[in-house]
Structures are given as C-alpha cells and as structure tokens.
Design a protein around this nucleic acid. Structure first.
Lengths: 204, 204
DNA sequence: ACCGGGCCTATCCTTCCGTATAGGGCCAGT
DNA sequence: ACTGGCCCTATACGGAAGGATAGGCCCGGT
C-alpha cells in the first residue's frame, strides 16, 4: 500500500514512516507541510492513504484537509493529531476525512488503523466516541460548572463580557461574576491569564 | 546502550524506540509520564541516557527535569520537545540537562545525538544556537518590532499594561501604544485575542 | 424545614483598557 | 534634506473590567 505522511516534525515523520515500512508492508512518501503534500499527491498520483498532521504549517484549522481530499481523488485522507480536542475529529470527518488518529495511540494500533482505512473503512478511536457520549470530562474542566465553561469558551474567542452575555442571553454582570470565579478556579489574576491557562490545558 | 524514553504519545514513543533499537544498538525502556520515568530509573538503575518529552503529564515546565537528573545519578538526561522555544533549551541546560532535542530533527540525527550524549557530551542543535545569536526569527514574529515582542511577552504572562511598563522601564501610555499596533498586526480585537494568537503561534 | 451551592440580577465604585490627538527624538533609505 | 519607520511621552475621555455587597430563585442533601 502506498501512503503519504505529512508532518513537520522530521523525527516523528521519519520514525513513523520507518515503522510502517518495516512492520507493515507500506511504501511511504513524505511531506513537511500542506503545500508539499498537495504537490506530492499531484505528482505521484493518488495514494491509498494520506496522513496529515493537524498542526502543520499551512493547514490552519482544517482548511488544508479539504484541499488534500480533493487532490487525492476519492481515496482516503486522515488527520493525525497530538492533542486531540475530539470536536476537531468530528469536524474532520464531516469534511470527508476517512479517519482521525491521535498520537496517543500505539504504533501497532496505528498500523491496524492504516490497514483498515486503506480498505476504505472510516476509522475513529473508541476513546473519542466515548468522549462524545460523555460531553466533557476534562482534567481541568471538571472543576468548572457548565456556565463557567461556556463563559471560558467565549473568553478564549477574545469576546468582551458584553458579547459573551449576548451570546448566552444573560446580563453582563452575570458574566463578570462567572469571570471572577473562573479566574479564582484557574488561579489567574485576570481574564488574559485565564484564557492562557485554558489554552495551555488544551481546551479549545 | 540503555536508554529511557518518556513520552505521553504512545505512537511517538513506540516508533522512536523501535527506530533506536533497530538502527542503533540501543535497549530502550519506556515511560508515559514523569512519575513512571522516575520509578523506572529507581527500579532499573541509572540509564546511559534519559529522554524526557517536554510536554508530558507531571512535568510542568522543567521541574520534572531536575528530579530525573537527580534520580539518574550522574548520567545524562535530555529534553525532547515538539515546539522548541529556544529559551527553554537554555534553561534546561542550565538545570543540568545533557541535551535538548527538537522533534523537527531527523531520525538519523537523533541517533547521532543520542550516541553523542551517551558518550557524555552535551548536545544542542546548531539551529538553536543560531537562534540565540539572532534573537527572534519567528514566522509570525518577524512582523513585530523588538519592543512589540517584549510587550507581547508581558501580555502573555497576563500582566497589566502598568506592570509591563514597570518591567520594561517605560510609561504605561507607551505600552498602550504598542498594544494597539500589536493588536493590528496580530489581527486581534483586543489584548486577549492577541495573547491567544501568540499562544497559537507557539511563541512563549 | 433548613441550609448550602449554583445560578442570575442589581447597584456602586475604582481601576484599567482602548482610542484619539499631538508632540519630539532617532536612524536609515531616497 | 527630506521622508518614513520606530520609539517614547503627554493629556484626555468613554467604556470595559474587576471588585464588593446584597438580594432572589431553584434544587438536592441534612
């Protein structure tokens, strides 16, 4: 099977490709960014499977994914992600990805998943499906109430209290209240620190 | 040579260890977090080299590094990092790390570096040294002046304009000025969005 | 029945943020 | 010599953020 692996980390790219080639019977082409990946797809024809790192130069969000899917003409494209926000996985699948693979997955499992996807099946790890069933369950987010979580989400978009209030159909003062408890719980001095803490924890 | 590799991403951990064991003549022990790494070091005696992922459960910042260095009694401990802020590398070395390895490095280079460090030498990639010489050189940061960069750094710590002004020995108004141009350049509506953008870009 | 916790709202006040306007100094390229 | 970019400062104002205090609603546990 012919596979294209695109990841900007040389080490990750080379070791994973070496693994797939030795343990699996794969022929692996490599790319370091979206542009390189798209070029390789066009030059070397469609691959049985294209693996795209989620965090890579060029593919802001998932815009690069659509381009790759189109370029690879029918055959599968999957997303490879280090810190998987679960929500991203759903969006990727909605855009037509054939799979979503967190790097927390084992190497042998990766190989199995790759074979599965090459066969045309859609692969999603059970962890993410479970996480979809029980909406949140995040180590840091467990301390927060639902409201506080919503407010934090607005905060991380850089919204003002008034805007968050409008979005949630509440009064501005209420947002301020939540913001204060939020800052306490996240051990932050102000909204910016709270936002950074949330970002650091991988929420949003 | 006996090596301990600690990384919370199963895939990365297993493929890299497979590479080191097949291409290099290494015996690789594995751990998924700091606690596991420390336990393994104590149980299985000191390793010729310990490789710690920078972003891993338990090791907030570099506090886990010191513990590992102490536990490994004299023999080397190195940091493995995905997004290398260069400054972190210097701090790691200051704390007694024997090396700093960005994952953007090739697999063969990793092997060379590992052999080098096992021999007792301190390894740092030239990229980082160069980056130290020419302070910044960041894709997004190239648009920013030095001052703006400093202000952004303070912002990302969650500091108030007044505090940033004190740190840089400037007037608060000046900070406000930079903050405004900063927001324009980062395409942000306010300081929070600017901070998130910086975080997103991997600065700090 | 009572209490506590989460939630929403209100008023008041201080401080900080964001913006505008208007200077001056420094240095590099034209 | 002039322009333009970067840097610093000053004054001023409206609005937002942050904090304190106080009250009411609903629900689950004692």
């Amino acid at each position: 099977m012919r596979i294209l692996l695109a990841d900007d980390h040389d080490m990750v790219r080379e070791t994973i490709s070496a693994y797939l080639e030795s343990k699996g019977d794969a022929i692996v082409a490599l790319a370091t960014d979206i542009d390189g990946a798209l070029r390789t797809i066009r030059d070397a024809g469609p691959f049985d499977l294209v693996l795209l790192d989620y965090q890579m130069p060029g593919m802001n969000g998932l815009v690069g994914l659509s381009a790759a899917i189109e370029a690879n003409g029918g055959k599968g494209v999957a997303i490879l992600s280090g810190s998987a926000p679960a929500k991203t996985a759903q969006e990727a699948l909605k855009l037509g990805a054939i799979g979503f693979i967190p790097k927390t997955m084992g190497a042998q499992s990766l190989l199995n998943a790759v074979r599965f996807m090459v066969a045309g099946e859609v692969y999603v790890p059970v962890d993410l499906m479970r996480e979809e069933a029980t909406p949140s369950t995040h180590p840091l987010a467990e301390k927060l109430s639902q409201r506080e979580f919503q407010v934090l989400e607005g905060l991380c978009k850089g919204l003002a209290n008034k805007e968050i209030a409008r979005d949630l159909d509440l009064q501005e003062v209420t947002i301020k209240l939540h913001m204060r408890t939020l800052c306490r719980k996240l051990d932050a001095k102000n909204r910016t620190q709270a936002a950074m803490a949330a970002k650091e924890a991988g929420l949003f």
